[in-house]
């Protein structure tokens, strides 16, 4: 049998579409662990990035964190996290937790850097006008800097989300579930159909994730440029939408 036929056969086998080890459940696991880690990364990186961008203080720290994050291989982060997470929870600490830690560690830098540069690059005249009219610093950040920088901020969220979806696949090596299980199990069972079916699903999820954030980004951009019709412009001033 050739690869395409094997993959097609695996994907169309009704057995793959039911149960704990079925595609829907693995997809759910994958999306769930990705969403959790993206949410944690946003909570950590977004306020910090916005604050650094607004005040201009800590820019060196942000750059350092970003470079460190970029230079770390995902697999290494998961492996390094295990000794720490095992102490927190002996069972989950060897499986899901290190993957989560790795995903957060890898997602923080793009979110932090884009939030920081996006806000720092907002036209200083806007900030000056806002301050001169009596906007408080918090109002300047939420009312001017964040909406105007939103396309750039979402660009960071987009990189982070794609990074996370990819890293979640690796987590399967350590037994954290998700679509990566099909790759791990397929290799172990010498089942090419399963391996490539899994690859296909992961790739599609990554593309879907990227497309979803890109749509948000485009809406934000049209709002920030002030060209949108009422409905698109209404999205820009709001907080960034979590998850993808």
């Amino acid at each position: 049998m050739n690869l395409v036929a094997e993959t097609a056969a695996w994907l169309t086998n009704p057995a793959q579409w039911a149960g704990q080890a079925g595609i829907p459940n693995r997809l759910l696991e994958h999306v769930l662990i990705s969403s959790i880690s993206l949410a944690v990364a946003l909570l950590l990186a977004l306020p910090a990035g916005l604050a650094i961008g607004h005040t201009g203080r800590g820019a060196g720290l942000a750059a350092g964190v970003a470079n460190l994050g970029r230079s770390l291989p995902s697999l290494a982060v998961i492996a390094l996290a295990i000794p720490v997470t095992v102490r927190i929870d002996p069972v989950l600490g060897g499986t899901v937790l290190p993957t989560l830690v790795a995903m957060v560690v890898l997602a923080v830098p793009p979110i932090l850097v884009n939030a920081y540069t996006g806000v720092a690059e907002v036209d200083r005249d806007l900030v000056e006008a806002g301050r001169g009219m009596g906007m408080r610093e918090r109002e300047i950040l939420s009312g001017i800097e964040l909406p105007v920088a939103l396309p750039v901020v979402l660009g960071g969220v987009r990189s982070a989300a794609v990074q996370i979806v990819a890293t979640a696949t690796l987590g399967a090596i350590f037994g954290s579930g998700g679509l990566g299980r099909f790759l791990v199990d397929g290799i172990a069972q010498n089942d090419d159909g399963q391996v490539f079916g899994g690859v296909l699903l992961v790739a599609m999820l990554a593309i879907a994730t990227e497309a979803a954030v890109e749509i948000l980004q485009r809406l934000a951009r049209s709002g920030a440029a002030g060209r949108g019709s009422g409905s698109t412009a209404a999205i820009a001033p709001g907080p960034p939408v979590l998850g993808a």
Binding site: D123, D125, A129, G130, G132, G143, P147, A224, G226
Partner: peptide, 14 residues
């Protein structure tokens, strides 16, 4: 009232 050279209108607002 405060008016600056670059006006500083908020681009995301009407």
């Amino acid at each position: 009232g405060y008016v600056i050279q670059q006006v500083g209108l908020f681009p995301h607002q009407t």
